[in-house]
Amino acid sequence: MKNKAVYFFLLPGIIFLVIFALLPMIQIFYFSLIDYTLIGSRSYNAFGNYIKLFGDERFWHVFLNSFLYLAVTPLLIIVSLLLALLLRENKKISIILRSVYFLPVVTPLVIAGIIWRWIFAEDTGLMNYLLSIINISNIPWLSSFPENMISLFIVTIWRGAGYYMMIFLAGLAVLPKEIEEAAEIDGAGYISKVFYIIIPQLKYVISLVFVVSAASAIKIFTELYVMIPGAPMDNKTIVYYLFSEAFEKFDFGVSSAAGVILFLITLGFSIANIKLMEHQK
């Protein structure tokens, strides 16, 4: 159809996206190049903010932590793929358990953080109590690095596994049955069937889950804000740093420079994601 009325339909969405996504991103690039604090001159500052950012030892800590945090993604893939394989058949019990495992996914992050903060509490928490039964005592789940990163890993896996399980189930549902049946006739056991037949066919789904979960892991913030607010910046991640530079220290220029760096990283994940989606079609 050709009709001038198209703009009535088209423009509301376009205007919102330009004002609340595209222009802000351009502004972030611009802010990262000016002297922008509460009392700053707002004049062109060349790469001053980047020099300040790269000279800040805390930035390198949060940068490294964010990448270390990506180590959660292979664990997440293993757990969610295992769940999908176990619940692959459309039996009643599988359908019920899929919902059970999905429940953490819909739980708001703040609430998930609150619950796990108590479970990991060092003196009174359940985790250390359970470990004390097998003679492991007083692990500083929240107050020391890298223990607190491991706690965050556990929360991320708890909250994410059900989601990626669903993606894997969708991937498993479209696999042709014949190949597996042929393998069974040839006498392949379940384990070898999984490793030699199923996983190779899920190659693209696995890469997709990797990219999607990595893109979300690198932006982790709320869990830290709720679970380890008192920990030093050295234990935190990029989004926490850019939040703190902007809204606690009011250095918008440096915060924007950190934002540009994070944007470039997530852009890499997004491009990989688009490539994988194209491949699947």
């Binding site: 996206l17 004002i19 991103m25 502004q27 972030i28 932006k219 939040f243 934002g259 997530t266 852009l267």
Partner: peptide
């Protein structure tokens, strides 16, 4: 392209300009 590009922008990064707006 505008729509696709907007999907590449994480909201966490643009909070400063959003706040200003």
């Amino acid at each position: 392209m505008i729509i696709l590009a907007s999907m590449l922008v994480p909201k966490e990064i643009i909070v400063i300009p959003l706040y200003r707006t």
